[in-house]
Design a protein around this nucleic acid. Sequence first.
DNA 1: CCTAGTGCTGAATCATACC
DNA 2: TGGTATGATTCAGCACTAG
Lengths: 368, 368
Amino acid sequence: MTTQKGAEALPLNTIIDGDCIEAMLALPEASVDLIFADPPYNLQLKGELHRPDNSRVDAVDDAWDQFSSFAAYDRFTQDWLKAARRLLKPHGAIWVIGSYHNIFRVGAALQDAGYWILNDVVWRKSNPMPNFRGKRLTNAHETMIWASKSEGAKYTFNYEALKALNEGIQMRSDWVLPICSGHERLKDAEGNKAHPTQKPVSLLHRVLVGSTNPGDVVLDPFFGSGTTGAVAKMLGRHWIGIERDASYREIAERRLSKTRKYDASALEVTAGKRQEPRIPFGQLVERGMLRPGEMLVNTRGQMAKVRADGTLIGDDIKGSIHQVGAHLEGAPSCNGWTYWHFRRDGKQVPIDVLRQQVRAELKGSRAN
Amino acid sequence: MTTQKGAEALPLNTIIDGDCIEAMLALPEASVDLIFADPPYNLQLKGELHRPDNSRVDAVDDAWDQFSSFAAYDRFTQDWLKAARRLLKPHGAIWVIGSYHNIFRVGAALQDAGYWILNDVVWRKSNPMPNFRGKRLTNAHETMIWASKSEGAKYTFNYEALKALNEGIQMRSDWVLPICSGHERLKDAEGNKAHPTQKPVSLLHRVLVGSTNPGDVVLDPFFGSGTTGAVAKMLGRHWIGIERDASYREIAERRLSKTRKYDASALEVTAGKRQEPRIPFGQLVERGMLRPGEMLVNTRGQMAKVRADGTLIGDDIKGSIHQVGAHLEGAPSCNGWTYWHFRRDGKQVPIDVLRQQVRAELKGSRAN
DNA sequence: CCTAGTGCTGAATCATACC
DNA sequence: TGGTATGATTCAGCACTAG
């Protein structure tokens, strides 16, 4: 283990009370191996939102997420990124997580500050909140940026460890992980969530296994509920948190005091179940395996036409392959995959053959 | 079909030869429904960039040169985004695709130009190129940004069609689609790929089905191999391409001349209830489908009486079917059509059934 | 003990036609 | 133009209860 200049002043494995920029300026330069940052997203939410069942969505409307303008947010971002870069060892690296509200500004600021982007990594949420009003796509992912201190700088990357985490296949830039919920989600005395945006252990586990080594110093300038610290401690890394909110510090302190090194129990979440991926019929149309306008036929010779959105239209019914099949049979349900056939080389082939082709392709690129 | 100001000058379904910014400035403003853009992002590579004064950038690891490179790319991005925004109709929208090299700068520039981000969408490649040296994560995705012309502006979103494409489940912001390869990949005379970054048809299919309607005008200012035009033509949308490279124009021309539109009935897409004509509840009373004095009941057995003017009166409240329902539920809103039931043949039937009868009648009379 | 069913929740930029 | 009234809209996972 190397001795580093000023390292004796590093308050290892503690939570610093204060503003993240001031606190970082007070720490010795070039002393940290990895920074993981979950800054405010600047969501800019306006009114209230209700689910179709009329329950109210508990939005992130905390004061710490409010900025007067993009310019103000940019200034804040530039300032903390600069202070963070000063703290990094020459071979250190940074991860920043965000959503479309802020991540583009953060990414540009990272590049402008001299960091060198190594990957952008997409956290694909297996259970995101739907878009209740049907006005946009389900916002089902967040974006992380992984960057080294400067172009050409060395950085830690445990390729084999991540490959092993991924069942022997090279780890990709998209990670499918569930959001933090259930028992993992910290609650306050009243049973409400203790922090509005607690990150899952599984996410930090993958970050720290992939880009740090045991004994490294990991800093989180927006410590919040302390997931970064907890995972660092479990994995035998040193950690430093900065948090200005007393109630967040309190729950993080309690959490860290109960966390044990190599406590793998919280990781069971990561080992997600693996099942046959669901292939929507529409994907066959998008991929050109079936053309809009093409006719499908059942075993009795009845026909239906494929539409551009992956629905079928028959004589007096339109809907999914299953719905139209059920209607023609007068049955409550129908497996459209085996019911419908298309013509190829003069023969009738069930469309399920096409689904299997897609599955085979996906299997080749499995992972996650 | 509506006549639009300056539309006679729109060169529909052609490829414009020239620089994208100049070409866009020459087109009539507010004339385009959708822009799909796949801008170049190799400008920051060594030797291809010029400083503002047009002197060449060579030492890329020099901090100033790096900044200069980004600045030049930013200026280029701002310029074409501004020209593009001028072309958009007030309810138009834009899609931009990129990778971590450029997408953060593009996203920030979009926001700064006044566009309003609706979603960022991750194209998750099912068969990406692996990272051969094992130095980083497999770069397995690209990012698209979907934005309206300004905050609060309307935009086209075919929610039900995308939901149908995804077999009845709301479409998410992460799309798993294969890269363009095999027969779909255009080859030149020597059998080499004709364009380095040809986008797959499946990607554009989803974009155009989701955010345009038949007859819309779709512009691609970086036309390349012409995937945008080809899919637009297949889907019965008008298209305009801008491309300055003669060899790309040539392969795109050939491609478009061979592309055929799907038949019209296949282009019809699942529509939502919002498209249905509005039926005032009072009309059911006028038509004698419900009698004044008749009692409606909710699922909890609570009753309200129908009045001659189409309002309801309950124990302590009178008003519309929606208002009385919301009051009884203590909810911010209520859909009275599904909330209230009437008795027919001893069974409780939602009044929405009556509305559907009226709509069916209207549809029949309109056809005559 | 297991299974089925209910209820709750998650970083959300989540209306629009009509008068 | 703004104010008002209509009425459309959700997926996965976990905790808990009932049987």
